[in-house]
Nucleic acid binder design. Structure first.
Lengths: 94, 94
DNA sequence: TAAATTAGTTTATAATGTAAACTACTTTAC
DNA sequence: GTAAAGTAGTTTACATTATAAACTAATTTA
């Protein structure tokens, strides 16, 4: 009947992050912040959770003297996202 | 970009309840329990939240000496569900 | 050199979700 | 008739989550 929904993705902000990452090769912290409209703090925490789950990789460096955080989806992340979307459909049928 | 997701519906169990109610005129507590696989306690709490929000109406009576709880979607609930599904699509685009 | 800005992280608290325990009755078995 | 098991829930206590506020650490601008 109803499929389980991965709790890691069933969160507005984390889902938005993954959704954005699906359509780009990689994304900067500031880009994700702007597109999602999230606060820095919240974004930082949620990025970390996605990283812990290995749904994304996070690379920290510097650019023009400022810290630069780059996020990228993993294969595991792609699979999880696709499953989530698929499972979600069982709830949306008319 | 991303639409807001009604937190009341962005919950696996409450979404499942509303999803079930969408396709039937009304549903009994036991029916919802069986279809969702939820525990009675959890179901009771989530039904109450949907009722507080006036997404459903709850009618309590007796049948064959046992308590009988019947749930039914409201217009408000239907609109909320439809908006939720619509807004959710902004997260699922490929 | 003080104030504002960038790019974040940490932490404290509020909000949520959920299982376990409980209520209140009914039915069945002895 | 009464003890045990079953029905249909509700309440409450705890654990998990989410999020905003406060903080770090540096840079830039005035």
């Amino acid at each position: 009947m109803f499929k389980e929904l991965d709790p890691l993705l069933h969160s507005q902000l984390r889902l938005a992050i993954m959704s954005l990452l699906m359509s780009v090769e990689e994304a900067e912290f500031t880009y994700l912040k702007e597109k999602t409209g999230a606060s820095s703090g919240n974004l930082s925490v949620q990025i970390d959770k996605l990283k812990q789950a290995e749904y994304i990789t996070v690379t920290k460096s510097f650019r023009d003297n400022y810290p630069l955080t780059i996020c990228k989806k993993t294969k595991r992340g792609i699979k999880a996202f696709e499953s989530y979307v698929d499972n979600l459909k069982s709830y949306l049928k008319p």
